[in-house]
Design a protein around this nucleic acid. Sequence first.
DNA 1: CTGTTAGCGCTTTCAG
DNA 2: CTGAAAGCGCTAACAG
Lengths: 334, 334
Amino acid sequence: MTTIKDVAQLANVSIATVSHVLNGTRFVSKEVQLRIMNAMETLNYQPSAVARGLRTKKTNTMAIIIPDITNPFFADFTRGFQDVVDQKGFLVLVCNSDRILTREIRFLEMIWQQRVDGVVLNPAMVKVEDLSRLVKARISVVLIGSQIDNPDFNVVMIDNVKGGFDATQHLIDLGHRKIGLVCGLLNTTSGGLRYQGYLKALEENGIPFQDDLTAEGPITYEGGYQCTRQLLSKNELPTAVFATSDVMALGAKTAIEDVGLQIPGDISLIGFDDIPEVSRTRPRLSTIAQPKYGMGQEAAIILLEQIENKQTNTRKRVVMTHKVIARESTAALK
Amino acid sequence: MTTIKDVAQLANVSIATVSHVLNGTRFVSKEVQLRIMNAMETLNYQPSAVARGLRTKKTNTMAIIIPDITNPFFADFTRGFQDVVDQKGFLVLVCNSDRILTREIRFLEMIWQQRVDGVVLNPAMVKVEDLSRLVKARISVVLIGSQIDNPDFNVVMIDNVKGGFDATQHLIDLGHRKIGLVCGLLNTTSGGLRYQGYLKALEENGIPFQDDLTAEGPITYEGGYQCTRQLLSKNELPTAVFATSDVMALGAKTAIEDVGLQIPGDISLIGFDDIPEVSRTRPRLSTIAQPKYGMGQEAAIILLEQIENKQTNTRKRVVMTHKVIARESTAALK
DNA sequence: CTGTTAGCGCTTTCAG
DNA sequence: CTGAAAGCGCTAACAG
């Protein structure tokens, strides 16, 4: 591996000068500049970001810790994030926590050791205590879709409780009263919050809560399928189902169809997230849309600003708006 | 940020000793060990991977350059890759090239500067010349889904020409002779190869090639939609369509339906990749399945092995098998 | 069993 | 306009 020293030698200048043409940080005569460029070329030189990082305390990398990059919601979010930090020359480490606490913590420590300049985290299981150490180390972090309502952290989110409420209310407005819930594990951030919204909507409409109308499971296609099968095996069937995540809603859809029921004829179905696929299935699924890509962008903007201004003390909190998208999978109760 | 020196001071030992307990690299008395652990704890210490990397020439990071993490195929592939390198303690930088040459090259240089330990690249536009510099710098790289058939590089792939051939032959076996092609841009790796397979199948079956039965565009849902609309606006309609990528096939599907045609009644449709969504649409799409997740794992295994043995001279080449999956979207010509 | 010390490849004063 | 040299936080001889 060739170093700055090799370049300096070949160009017959000091390493300081090489460094300066590298960074354009002070005037260097055209002639010397040329000699250096040539040396770099012939030596196939690329400066070491790690040496530079050690010196400057800036690595030009960010990290993002999400449950699973394979989930279209997070893929989209990540893309939004990457597209804006990329323009500022940052690379990004992507970590899949699978919503497992030990993994969340492990990644948090690893990226800390890497001295990334900023972190975005979707905290599924981790608690404030685990995070404050990071913040104390003066690493900028923004939480996404978090219920952690602590002034110590930057947050980009939607109102998940309201989202869960709106989805349920949409069903109620259509005349449904027996509303099933297919929910991501409750100890999980989004699962718990949307569940609360569900409860609230029932309560405000004077509909008694029925425990056997709800099922919780992993936030995957399979999870949605299993939960729904479970729901449909009870003696009393719901006339509508709210799945707290679109990937689960997709599973719910085939579960419903597998037992020979029609959507929305027999059962209405609404999901959450608005991933591309749900608008292509037949029937097209109603859902609560989140601005995933835009949320990624927001998170990036916050981090970049804090990094540039070294403002590790001010905190931002942006709440984005969700939207009820009524498509073909929800219909009035007959 | 607290350093190893702080820890050493507080624990009243030399930094060497701290380093050794950190890495378990030589015996340290229980008592001293405990003192050091405590010091680390109270100082909230995390060793700097960048300093360590400068010293050891190992960063414990990998990079993956793909067209777009939002494409389910690459998301799955990436996950397979990450899951195996993660077990060895590697973090991974994910870069989206969007199949743009300048971006591919830019990322290649950036990760080079980061001194990553290994790189996996889906070369859409980049040529061997651009890559050999990297290899000369002794960075392990494995190409995926590549047409670059150079003994200098590790490769994990399927036989794309054969894949394109098989898809087309499947249609021909069903009696189709007017077979449309919805193709990713031809200057793109996979697009070009599958196109060749298409041509070969036509030729072997004595079917003349018709230029107006083919359209090329970006490998996206939109691209697939547009290409198909274009195809369907010609005076002579195909009875079957081969889309060289599932995301394009999805676009093709709605394009066909939008003009009021039935699948497979009026037009049969087959895609490529077998992303989850195509098995959930109605009708379920036939496709060529690639072991995406497994390919990611393979790539990881190759890199890990080369890194561990510092074998930058031996090259591996693994060709994985694809499979024709006939579902509901392809039917015999009436 | 533990400590001293020389670098790894850069950036950045300070001098000239 | 350019150079010398200190030092970022670690690891790994080498020494005891």
